[in-house]
Amino acid sequence: MSRLLINESPVMIIPSLAAKIGLNEAVVLQQIHYWLGISKHKIEGKTWVYNTYEEWQKQLPFWSVSTIKRSIRSLEMLGLLLSDNWNQMKMDKTKWYSIDRKIAGV
């Protein structure tokens, strides 16, 4: 028997992180951390992952795109999440993300 009720990929919640930075922010930061762990995109000494807000919403379907935008903006303002545009075509506004591990303490 599986330890999950439904056979799908779970979303991780770390209670101490959620208490410190907020539930939404903790879930988004953990999701980005997960993807950074398998990303092959190394730029300027950091690993990066990219997604549109709509693509993040497919992974976190219980939130609206606007909630995801707010959570990402909050993480950027806290200095935990780095974002940039590393796209080949600068007209492509898909954001790339990395975690500032010095500030995040991870």
Rank of each mutant, 00 (worst) to 15 (best):
S2F: 13
S2Q: 06
R3L: 15
I6V: 15
N7Y: 12
E8K: 12
E8V: 11
E8D: 06
E8N: 08
S9M: 13
S9R: 14
P10N: 02
P10S: 02
V11E: 12
M12T: 10
M12L: 14
M12C: 08
I13M: 13
I13E: 11
S16V: 03
L17Q: 02
L17F: 00
A18P: 08
K20W: 00
K20A: 07
K20M: 01
K20R: 09
I21G: 01
I21M: 01
L23M: 09
A26V: 02
V28R: 03
Q30G: 03
Q30F: 01
Q30L: 03
Q31A: 05
Q31W: 08
I32S: 04
I32L: 07
H33Q: 02
H33A: 08
H33T: 05
Y34I: 06
Y34L: 08
W35L: 13
W35E: 14
L36M: 03
L36H: 05
G37K: 02
I38M: 10
S39P: 14
K40P: 09
K42Y: 11
I43E: 14
I43P: 01
E44H: 04
E44R: 08
K46H: 13
T47H: 06
T47I: 13
T47K: 05
W48P: 11
W48H: 02
V49W: 02
V49N: 00
Y50W: 09
N51S: 12
N51V: 00
N51M: 06
T52G: 11
Y53N: 10
E54S: 12
W56F: 15
W56P: 09
Q57M: 10
Q57D: 11
K58M: 04
L60C: 07
L60P: 14
L60A: 04
P61L: 06
P61H: 06
P61R: 01
F62C: 05
F62Y: 14
W63H: 10
V65E: 07
S66K: 13
T67W: 00
T67Y: 02
T67N: 07
T67R: 03
I68P: 03
R70Q: 09
R70D: 12
S71W: 03
S71N: 04
S71Y: 07
I72W: 01
I72D: 04
R73H: 12
R73P: 04
S74M: 08
S74Y: 15
L75E: 10
L75V: 07
L75N: 10
L75Y: 11
M77F: 08
M77Y: 12
L78W: 01
L78Q: 13
L78Y: 09
L80N: 00
L80Y: 12
L80A: 00
L81S: 08
L81Y: 03
L82R: 03
L82S: 07
L82C: 09
L82A: 05
N85Q: 07
N85G: 06
W86M: 00
W86P: 05
N87A: 12
M89W: 10
M91N: 05
M91R: 04
M91P: 01
M91T: 08
K93R: 10
T94M: 11
T94L: 02
T94Y: 04
T94N: 09
K95D: 09
W96M: 00
Y97Q: 04
Y97D: 06
Y97A: 01
S98Y: 10
I99N: 02
D100E: 14
R101E: 14
R101A: 10
K102N: 11
K102S: 11
V106W: 15
V106P: 03
